[in-house]
């Protein structure tokens, strides 16, 4: 897989909050009164759990649930791996917010013309390479950008080299079908509010299983209902004596078979 990804190693994070500030600046977000929560003015947060800091942001899923549920296809997964939102298409049904397994998309509740807000995986070309605002400013290299498969290798080799430092799990490798953002942590992910009960395959399958059956339901149903009404109407005609005797004999047998 050639898509880009971000590896965030929580054990290296010192909680300086530079990434949050950079994100605000680079994405020209309005001043944010509540830095503790994701919101329509805040694409990422740095929080603390006991001795460890950790981040929250859109995970940029490999097979994004938000993109699959949106009735107008306002979300797209780009070739680079970013999950982007197009406000011009959106009609504001908020199904994406309901469905996102990581509870990421945020809404502008107090606007008459609201849009959905979330991290955009803001890739910038700097110093001859690619960086997101948050990966670029991180003084500790706790957030770094790279090819996803490469980052996965790094993550696992870190776990192997320091088994005492990490829980043996790369969050996002397969969760919800895998995500472009990969996480390493020293404390179990549940404690940080990262769900461990997510399907290990793509979430959109959950609804696609049902949706993909629709054409056959329509066909079968149409034929059944049509046939049913044909048989019944025929019966009524027979009862009211509209059909001739000899036709009747043949029909009776057929109907018995149909029942």
């Amino acid at each position: 897989m050639e898509t880009l990804g971000m590896l965030i190693d929580f054990t290296e994070c010192i909680g300086c909050g530079e990434c949050v500030k950079a994100c605000q600046q680079f994405n020209s977000l309005p001043p944010n009164p509540d830095p503790e929560h994701l919101s329509d003015r805040n694409y990422t947060v740095v929080l603390r759990y006991e001795e460890q800091y950790y981040r929250k942001l859109c995970m940029h899923c490999q097979d994004p649930t938000c993109a699959s549920v949106c009735p107008v296809g306002a979300f797209t997964k780009t070739e680079q791996g970013r999950v982007l939102y197009n406000a011009d298409k959106c009609m504001g049904c908020r199904y994406c917010m309901m469905a996102c397994p990581f509870g990421v998309p945020r809404y502008q509740w107090s606007k008459a013309i609201p849009v959905i807000k979330k991290c955009v995986f803001c890739i910038h070309e700097v110093n001859g390479g690619k960086e997101t605002a948050c990966s670029w400013v991180c003084p500790m290299g706790a957030t770094r950008l790279g090819r996803r498969h490469h980052l996965l290798d790094i993550a696992w080799s870190r776990i192997r080299r320091h088994p005492d430092r990490y829980v043996p799990y790369v969050y996002g490798e397969n969760d919800a079908g895998g995500t472009s953002v990969l996480l390493l942590s020293g404390v179990p992910f549940e404690q940080l509010g990262y769900r461990m009960d997510l399907p290990q395959g793509p979430m959109p399958q959950l609804t696609w299983q049902v949706l993909s059956k629709i054409p056959s339901i329509v066909l079968t149903g149409g034929v059944l209902l049509g046939g049913l009404s044909w048989i019944i109407n025929r019966r009524i005609q027979i009862e009211t004596g509209d059909l001739k005797e000899n036709e009747l004999a043949g029909d009776k047998e057929k109907e018995v078979g149909d029942e």
Partner: peptide
């Protein structure tokens, strides 16, 4: 934008 559902198809969406 409700009419968008008529032209911007996403057959993967239940909605």
């Amino acid at each position: 934008n409700i009419w968008h559902a008529m032209i911007m198809w996403n057959p993967h969406s239940v909605m």
